[in-house]
Design a protein around this nucleic acid. Structure first.
Lengths: 147, 147
DNA sequence: ATTCTTATTAGTAATCATTATTGTTACTGA
DNA sequence: TCAGTAACAATAATGATTACTAATAAGAAT
């Protein structure tokens, strides 16, 4: 699945990726739509969503869907940390986490007034692990019985 | 705003808070609706949402709105860390973060298979800080000119 | 206790981000 | 050249949440 889930490199997808990577901001799908439309006036919001999804699945970009309303997208696929404004929703990168933290003891970071730090562990819970196992068995059985 | 934003202690709000605090799981609004309906069969989903919102604003519960679809709610208002299943959306508490991490070096935690750790800094960006200042000025001016 | 005020409710409609569907276009490989 | 299909634009559908409205009931005043 790594590379090449998609087999046609359309102009739409090229421009979406280009523009997203060029931007230092972390636009929402709608914002990106507005930007890409300057080059491709007929492109639809659905195409933006569809391609962003594909690019995420191919690890070429990141989807930043914290709570709140709209998800935001980051042209940098490498994991790094983010600063989010709880008022306007704006998202900034943190280049060097450790330095950033040392600098002023969590109170301020890139001009932000930090309210709190959220740490979240993402993984697969025990039940879903079990389910995945039995699902795999089912798949194997089905494969065997094919045709 | 701390306590007493609401002035009537309705049965609906009591039961919502009670049930949420009793549960160790972190139910969605819809799940909580199903549960509370056993005691108050006529309660509507809107009432659940409205009261959860009020309780959050009064720091009596927490809203856990990571990305994904539904937000989840936690009857414990004190900050602590969470484990989230990226498959089913289930959320568990982490009681002692440091011990938890030491235990098995991020690979496993409470039976979860950890995929990654998300760190997010939440705060107010420089622009919103400026805006807040001018807004306050406006408020002061308006107060002066009252009546 | 009874009345009064209005915060809160149930029920429902509206909103908004996102996803799915549909009919069409245009690659791609035979 | 043509069949098959990825991807498109346009638009409808979905699903969580919020807003609206008339009815209800909590708590104060009488």
């Amino acid at each position: 699945m790594r590379t090449g889930e998609f087999q046609r490199n359309t102009r739409q997808r090229q421009v979406i990726l280009e523009e997203l990577c060029r931007l230092k901001s972390h636009p929402t799908a709608a914002e990106l739509h507005r930007i890409v439309r300057k080059q491709l006036p007929k492109i639809s919001l659905g195409t933006i969503y569809r391609n962003l999804d594909i690019l995420v699945r191919n690890d070429m970009i990141q989807k930043l869907d914290f709570g709140g309303s709209e998800a935001r997208f980051d042209g940098n696929p490498n994991r790094h940390y983010h600063l989010r404004c709880i008022q306007c929703g704006r998202v900034d990168d943190i280049k060097d986490l450790s330095t950033g933290i040392m600098l002023d003891d969590f109170k301020r970071l890139k001009g932000y007034k930090i309210h709190h730090l959220r740490i979240e562990f993402l993984g697969i819970c025990p039940e879903c692990q079990k389910k995945a196992k039995t699902d795999n068995k089912d798949v194997r059985r089905k494969k065997k019985n094919r045709r």
